[in-house]
Design a protein around this nucleic acid. Structure first.
Lengths: 148, 148
DNA sequence: GTTGGTGCAAACGCTTTGCACTTGG
DNA sequence: CCAAGTGCAAAGCGTTTGCACCAAC
């Protein structure tokens, strides 16, 4: 079952509707290997005059973000890779909340984070906090860019 | 030497000027214990008609961000704590790049991250990347809020 | 005296909103 | 059926920019 299908199933279970625009948006998101912006999504889905309105894009991105299906990336390198837009998003695979972004080409690779989660929860407790969640963004140069 | 003084020294060394507005902005930032937005900074420094223009706030925040003196926080909880504005910033103490944010009151505590950095660099290498840097945001409930 | 920094106000562009229409369940 | 979802276009608003003036070094 693909990421898009999993998202649709969950939406359905949560009482949301599985609509054409949502299918199209999810499908498009799956094709990205780099952080993308809402505007870029809009453009790639047909832009002005296309079948999907801007508002729907933003509302859907918000929905996905709220349910943890998307993660925001906001460092300069990531933003630049995403055409200069301020907010870039990355699809989140189950259990792979963390990711590493290439500062050169912007490609994103999800990484397993059990150890990170453990370490994070320990750090939180050390500060007296009740740990809830964390988000880690790594930056570096990907294998492909290293060869150039 | 305070954070503001350290920042000013570094700016000076880098060929930037130590001006009144910059002093005021740095001073104000030191007073925050929660993530703050550019707009909030502008308001707290006098707002419209005040001694410092909006443009200066934004330009300075950008400068500080670029040199790593500020860190961006962008999760919903943090944003809400920061009056609903999209971008929230946190002053970065030397070596304490990571921080934990209380989901309830928004208070921020810096945390040491040697272990996190080590783990991050290992994860990056495991993915074939040349590690450069990382940013970790933890979320939880602070000691004070736990008592309520 | 230079040149980087600043303030102002207008321009920008991403995001949100109101409302009538459409559609999924 | 009917509430959730959508499209459109306008409004909103945080952020950037151009330009003349000012002040740090």
């Amino acid at each position: 079952m693909s990421w898009a299908e999993r998202v649709l199933n969950t939406l359905s279970v949560h009482g949301h509707r599985v609509t054409g625009p949502r299918r199209a948006i999810l499908e498009q998101i799956m094709h990205y290997s780099q952080p993308f912006s809402a505007e870029q999504l809009f453009r790639d889905l047909g832009g002005v005059g296309g079948p999907i309105g801007r508002a729907t894009i933003y509302r859907t991105v918000d929905l996905l973000l709220g349910d943890g299906w998307l993660s925001r990336v906001h460092w300069r390198a990531a933003r630049e890779a995403s055409n200069g837009h301020d907010h870039a998003y990355v699809a989140v695979e189950q259990g792979l909340r963390h990711h590493i972004v290439c500062r050169n080409c912007g490609v994103v690779v999800a990484i397993a984070g059990e150890q990170i989660d453990v370490l994070a929860s320990q750090s939180a407790e050390h500060a007296g906090f009740i740990y809830e969640t964390c988000s880690l963004e790594l930056y570096g140069i990907c294998p492909t860019c290293q060869l150039r």
